[in-house]
Design a protein around this nucleic acid. Structure first.
Length: 520
DNA sequence: CTAGGGTTAG
């Protein structure tokens, strides 16, 4: 029964059952404890773990190797390496697993020196312990020592190679990583995911797509798995590569990933970010099991698309399904309120978050509230709110206010916001441009000119505006005011046509459908 | 019936 609970990640239930066992004076044997200790570890319950430790000693199992190793692992995970080491020292005979556990413990608490010291005196080191030591250096950012150790390693397996590969990418050494990858004679799906995921984590999304296409072409014997697809979907989201995203969707369905929660979540996010909320909803509805990220993705996606009502309906469904929202869920919910101008409702959701769910609001939540007020036109209240919040407002919040100042043509507050923004990010030209646009809207051309001078004095040029569009089989970049583009004539002809179309009286922008609180 | 290693999502 304990194994059943523990194997299925029902750790609280494991503990409850174990305590029932104790209160009924049923004596545990040596097989009982590992499940219980693992549950303490997974629940990060140090206090409970200590109690179990005492019970182990009382029951006479102190010398059991399996139990000691479970305990070392538990203490290490909850951040009590000292206790872990005590257990290790108390072991009459330590095998390689015990050495591995204590070394992992030191690495986990970023004590690489002690980890290495123990590694050096470990008898009969195997590939696993070598790999753990190497990844320990990598997680400490010491790629040089990691590589040195790798070179000294006697029997390198493919995982060792993959560890080094991922290490180069995590430490942003792309050249070495690529070189290392190309020199690997044997590869598996983890190798490819190391490359693709490495690019994805570092925001190199064009490279993600390139590597993915290379994988399909060069390694047809190694099919992508769920992790591959998720990395590719992330890149599609960021690049707006809807066509490739749809291809991944079809691929996922054809290859048995239809009900994979990671892939499903990736698809929801991809469709939302690529502007296709209907497909995002369809994926959401087809998913048999949903986790927190599934709910958060669809709620955030709907809010982002201005479908605040639907976002709030889904949020209700989530609560009815007894799923516990977290801080990110509420970012979506508050954002939904903001985009519908539901000021009061936004505040009641904020209270729901802090009171009913005991979620400590973070800066993004305060930002949502300030934005909620500002977009609804309550500019003074927004400034007041910002000044009174328990966290110092950041540039994101002040620039949201500055944006609202433009909407409501409030110069006084705009100037205050810019002052704050100059303090917070003196080198961001976007802030000057925002205020300059407000002056421009109001025809205050001397002020526009004055700002232009002030901006020049900062010595920072605004990077050229850039947009991406998927063309045929790739993603093409467009730069604002680009005179050098080979298809310049054609592009500007279409662009001007679109501008005329937007201006024409027959064009229905759909603005009527927006709720109050918006001024265009 | 018990112990140690890698990638993925908001």
């Amino acid at each position: 029964m304990l194994k059943g609970y523990s194997d299925n990640e029902f750790y609280e239930e494991t503990m409850v059952l174990f305590n029932q066992m104790k209160s009924r004076d049923v004596r545990p044997n040596c097989f009982t404890f590992p499940f219980v200790i693992k549950s303490c570890k997974m629940l990060l319950a140090l206090g409970e773990g200590k109690k179990v430790h005492c019970f182990v000693i009382k029951s006479g199992f102190e010398m059991n190797r399996f139990i000691s190793i479970a305990m070392i692992d538990m203490y290490s995970t909850v951040g009590a390496v000292k206790l872990a080491h005590q257990v290790f020292d108390g072991m009459p005979e330590r095998n390689i697993v015990a050495w591995t556990a204590i070394i992992s413990g030191y690495i986990l608490s970023a004590d690489i020196k002690n980890a290495r010291r123990l590694f050096e005196i470990t008898p009969d080191r195997d590939v696993i312990i070598w790999n753990i030591m190497i990844s320990g250096y990598i997680s400490n950012g010491d790629m040089v020592t990691a590589r040195k150790l790798f070179n000294e390693m006697p029997n390198r397996d493919l995982m060792a190679f993959n560890t080094i590969l991922i290490g180069y990418f995590n430490n942003e050494n792309f050249e070495e990583g690529e070189k290392f990858f190309d020199e690997m004679t044997e590869k598996n799906v983890f190798s490819w995911n190391g490359l693709i995921g490495g690019y994805a984590r570092k925001g190199r999304f064009s490279e993600v797509l390139g590597a993915f296409k290379r994988m399909l072409k060069e390694s047809s014997d190694i099919p992508p798995n769920d992790a591959t697809l998720v990395s590719v979907l992330t890149a599609c989201s960021r690049l707006g590569a809807l066509a490739l995203g749809k291809w991944v969707h079809v691929y996922a369905v054809d290859n048995g990933y239809k009900q994979n929660i990671y892939v499903g979540n990736g698809l929801i996010d991809m469709y939302s970010k690529c502007g296709n909320i209907e497909n995002a909803i369809e994926v959401f509805n087809c998913m048999n099991s949903k986790d927190l990220i599934t709910w958060n993705s669809i709620i955030g996606g709907l809010a982002m698309h201005g479908r605040g009502n639907d976002a709030l309906i889904i949020f209700d469904q989530m609560r009815n399904a007894n799923k516990k929202p977290d801080g990110i869920t509420f970012v979506g919910v508050l954002c939904a309120c903001t985009h519908m101008g539901l000021t009061e409702k936004g505040f009641s959701y904020f209270n729901l978050m802090t009171e009913d769910y005991s979620i400590v609001p973070e800066i993004e939540h305060f930002g949502c509230m300030a934005d909620l007020l500002a977009r609804a036109g309550f500019l003074n209240e927004a400034v007041d709110y910002i000044r009174k919040m328990p966290i110092q407002a950041d540039a994101v919040i002040w620039s949201a206010l500055l944006g609202a100042c433009r909407t409501y043509r409030n110069i006084q507050l705009a100037e205050i916001a810019l002052e704050k923004l100059i303090e917070l990010e003196p080198k961001n030209p976007a802030n000057y441009i925002m205020l300059s646009n407000i002056y421009k809207d109001m025809g205050r051309w001397e002020d526009v000119a004055r700002l232009k001078v002030a901006m020049k004095e900062t010595g920072v040029r605004k990077p050229t505006g850039c947009s991406l569009i998927e063309v045929n089989d790739g993603v093409t970049e467009f730069y604002s005011l680009d005179e050098k583009h080979p298809q310049r004539e054609e592009i500007y002809r279409v662009l001007n046509g679109l501008v005329e179309l937007l201006k024409s009286p027959s064009y229905d922008s759909g603005i009527d459908e927006l709720e109050e609180g918006y001024v265009y």
